[in-house]
């Protein structure tokens, strides 16, 4: 086979030239699978982080977009990949926590098929409304919803998206109802919200902060545990009187189950260093992301809580997204 290999290499005119590094991982380029199209939040997280990681790992990192089926297509492929540290995944809360709560059959089990590495970044959701919407704060909204049950339209970036489930959680905690209007992604939902075709929505802070500043959207509350420095006058959900709607959208890194200990250690080290470097932190904070850089232990504990919580929301709200 070596002869064949050489021959093909010669035909292709491709010189395989790996920089001579000390023995050990990584000896060749690392592939990071993003189970969403290029340009989205997971893609941005992966590209910003890996650009920095290349420096410490000394090998190029290739970001590969494998979109499909709410991220479960790419995640399923990574789950089946060889656990040698050359295939990683950067996925969202949807891939790790919501899909398992929502779908009966998934091509992967995030708690069993992955070696969880780190929760890289997170961003809170915000409750926004069209400026002409009558309610100006959370209490007014709750009162308005109670007076007009099944009337107010809540835009979301899709059936079973994190903002859909946040809205469902909000209804459950406040004993209200609304009309869920799903869109194909966050952008068209925000567009219709600005245009006044839909009334209220939970959106990622980073996606709407400019619209809020420009006065195109009205900010009612933020779902983080503390107020946000960019909007210091906006109360958290808890301050506004609604308990238990503390929600973040997060992006995390994992590898197929069974990484060798030294590879795992090296990856964790490189990830933490990259995420905590000032320029990476700055880039993330510019787009409303907060670096978490949790340890793998913290990640798996957190993941367990998240899956349970969304399972509850899905069951209580009788939310279905597949047959």
């Amino acid at each position: 086979m070596t002869a064949l290999k050489l021959l093909s290499a010669a035909i292709l005119g491709v010189a395989i030239s790996a920089p001579a590094l000390a023995a050990g991982y990584p000896e060749k380029p690392v592939t990071v699978v993003v189970p969403f199209p290029a340009g989205g939040a997971s893609d941005t997280t992966a590209r910003v982080t890996t650009q920095k990681m290349q420096e410490s790992l000394g090998q190029p990192i290739v970001v590969e977009n494998k979109p499909g089926a709410n991220g479960s297509l790419g995640a399923g492929q990574v789950a089946k990949a060889k656990p040698d540290g050359y295939t990683l995944i950067v996925g969202s809360i949807g891939v790790y926590a919501i899909n398992p709560a929502l779908y009966k059959s998934l091509p992967y089990d995030p708690t069993k098929d992955f070696d969880l590495l780190t929760v890289a970044v997170r961003t809170p959701n915000v409750l926004v409304a069209n400026p002409s919407f009558p309610a100006n704060n959370v209490q007014e909204l709750v009162a308005y919803l109670k007076k007009n049950p099944e009337k107010v339209t809540f835009a979301s970036s899709g059936a079973g998206s994190s903002d859909h489930l946040t809205a469902a959680l909000f209804w459950q905690k406040t004993g209200t109802t609304g009309v869920h209007v799903p869109y194909k992604g966050g952008a068209p939902a925000i567009t219709d919200l600005i245009g006044g075709h839909a009334e209220v929505s939970f959106q990622n802070l980073g996606a709407v902060s400019n619209h809020i500043k420009a006065g195109k959207l009205k900010l009612l509350a933020i779902t983080s545990d503390k107020r946000n420095s960019a909007f210091p006058d906006t109360p958290t959900m808890k301050e506004a009187g609604v308990e238990g709607v503390e929600v973040y959208s997060w992006q995390a890194v994992a590898a197929p189950k069974g990484l060798p200990a030294d590879v795992k250690g090296k990856l964790e080290q490189s990830l933490t260093a990259a995420l905590n470097s000032p320029d990476v932190k700055g880039k993330f904070s510019d787009i409303g992301f907060e670096v978490v850089a949790s340890t793998s232990g913290q990640f798996s504990e957190f993941l367990g809580q998240e899956i349970n919580r969304w399972k509850n929301v899905v069951e209580t709200g009788k939310i279905t997204a597949d047959q």
């Binding site: 340009g39 893609d43 941005t44 590209r47 952008a187 925000i190 902060s209 400019n210 420009a214 787009i287």
Partner: peptide, 27 residues
């Protein structure tokens, strides 16, 4: 003007802006 992508190409352009540290939007 609004930070709204009208097609997949514009969505990629917005992704590129974000990567460059520019928050797309009316501002």
């Amino acid at each position: 003007t609004l930070g709204i992508p009208s097609n997949p190409v514009m969505a990629l352009m917005i992704g590129a802006m974000i990567m460059q540290g520019i928050q797309p939007g009316p501002s």
